[in-house]
Design a protein around this nucleic acid. Sequence first.
RNA 1: UGCGGGGUGGUGGAGUCUGGUACCACGUUGGGCUCAUAACCCAAAGGCCGCGGGUUCAAAUCCCGCCCCCGCAACCA
Length: 654
Amino acid sequence: MPKFYLTTPIYYVNARPHLGHTYTTVVADTIARYQRMCGFDVFFLTGTDEHGETVARSARKAGVEPKAFVDEVAAQYQRLWKTLGLEYDRFIRTSEPGHAAAVKKIFQVVKRAGYIYKGKYEGLYCIPCELYVTDPTPEGNCPTCGRAPERVQEENLFFRLSAFQERLLEHYEKHPEFIQPVTRRNEVISFVRSGLRDLSISRTRFGWGIPVPDEEGHVFYVWFDALTNYLTGIGYGAGGAKQREFSRLWPADLHLVGKEIIRQHAVYWPAFLLAARLPLPRSVWAHGHWMFEQEKMSKSRGNIVRAEPVHRVLGSDGLRYFLLREMVFGQDGNFSYAALLTRYNSDLANDYGNLASRLLTMVERYFKGEIPYPSAGADRTAEDKEVEAVAEKSITRFQQCFDRYDFSRGLEAVWSLIAALNKYLVETEPWELAEDETRRARLATILWTAAEGLRIATALLYPAMPTASERIWSQMGLEGDPSQVKLDELSWGQLPTGTRIGPFESVFPRLDKEAVLRQLRELEEKLTAGPTGAAPGGAVAADEQNWITIDDFAKVEMRVGEVRSADRVAGAQRLLKMMVDIGDEVRQIVAGIAEAYSPEQLVGRKVVIVTNLQPRRIRGVESNGMIVAAAVGEQGRPVLATFSEDVPVGARLK
RNA sequence: UGCGGGGUGGUGGAGUCUGGUACCACGUUGGGCUCAUAACCCAAAGGCCGCGGGUUCAAAUCCCGCCCCCGCAACCA
């Protein structure tokens, strides 16, 4: 049996799983189930990435040892995957001893091949990003996250990434399917063409990592450590039977990743593998991101969607269906509760679920629960043949789409069959025929035909919605379960006749939109109210109130000022430079309010100024104070503080 | 300003690489049916495919210019 080895990224345990993690894993699970139905011997690997300074810090903050911290968060991931019915073959954790051994081994191989050298790094380092800041912003901040980097000096081991530029480009050229979709491929190619710098692969600043052999005080940089999981997860370096398993499974057929880490997977990873003389994975597929109601999800916006509330209300299949159906694989998608419920009600409840219950009800009522069969000489009408044709076409189309991970279109193909079946029932009116004893044969043909269509649709839906598919399968009284269906053998006419249908009940009950929306919001709130971010349950101390004393407040000097003049700062979209009269002097102040206020609106206006703030140059212009404004809405639109009574310039606020 | 992604009937999306019928879902309006989960079926209305130019027998699709939106980054003390 041919093998199919696929992976998700290993998730960084600094944060609790959110919708993005769930999406990748759902996709992987769906592909795994699909490929099994296609006859592949599938191996599905996922796991957690547990090293690095950020994790060490979060653990310290939570007051626990790193190991205890990562154990807790890794368990959260495993629990969630379990509740969502995601069935991986192995969950790897980079803190496992076996993994460390394998990382060391591959390092030795790469080192012996001459691709490692020792260098000195002196400069800026951004701790949250775990990146060296080689070209900081004009302000001296990290270009990735905008925070202030720290000045460090350390001796590092470097990987000669630069030596692989040509070989990588050649590989992309020869294997166009290596990076997908095409837009990502183009991005990567232009990045590599622009020149590769050697990569520092060790750190000496912290200890929470895998020690580098023979290098006192060095631990591996997270990516060198993390990427290697794809090898260790299937037995690399383990020896014996495990090594044979490795040889059988490697190279990976598919690395599923989010678009934010395509570079690591399409550049660094193949370079490491080339250096270690290992075959390269067949493809790296980068999917897009989920937005929440048209906005990027982010912690600061507080709009991170979690799978748990949705699962509680809709069940895992409802969530899976939405994720697969609504996003064009590879592009960004938009998540909203309203869209989720609309999809659920119209596709799952009205079309599919309702089809099953109307059909099963009729089988129960007209044939005592036994799926009837068309009698030998029964005439088949044009309608019957049409249904068969649609079913055959759905099977083909579904496979074509799923083969290229076009889940959305593939599911559409199944729905074209479901729609055809609903239509068929309306047109043939079996409930009319049931009134007439002489037309039993025709009635039998119709119900058999519809049931056969439902069987095919249900089999095709298994990869996307395993639970629902299994339930309807058994409600129809079919043998075994849909996972055993071989897709290349699935075709019209295999529905066994005379099988007794099982007890049935609605698999996708219709939902009251308003009520469910409310329920979702409540569940969500309950979740956010708990420890947020990385904090594993209970590990975080109750928030101490951030009281300040009156003396603290007294340190801030705020005065009423009047804007004398205001001008835009050249080349800056949001900045205004103002001259503000604060009584005894006129201050120059720069503020990021240009998008909300025009200079003309401001001149002559009384505002509140923090006057004892340390002066600072912003975009080359000195600012001697800060203007006080409310941040309104999610975008933080500034609204200036004002007085409704007249106040003299220079008056102090207390 | 730099990089990336977009602008398609009321809404959300396909289609753009590989020019030639604008497709899907939701929504709206009218009708049908009663087996079914107020579900299902039929019909209709609704689009100068962001704007301007070009290539072509033919452009949503290719080329040039412009406008607008979103994300990231840079300024937001």
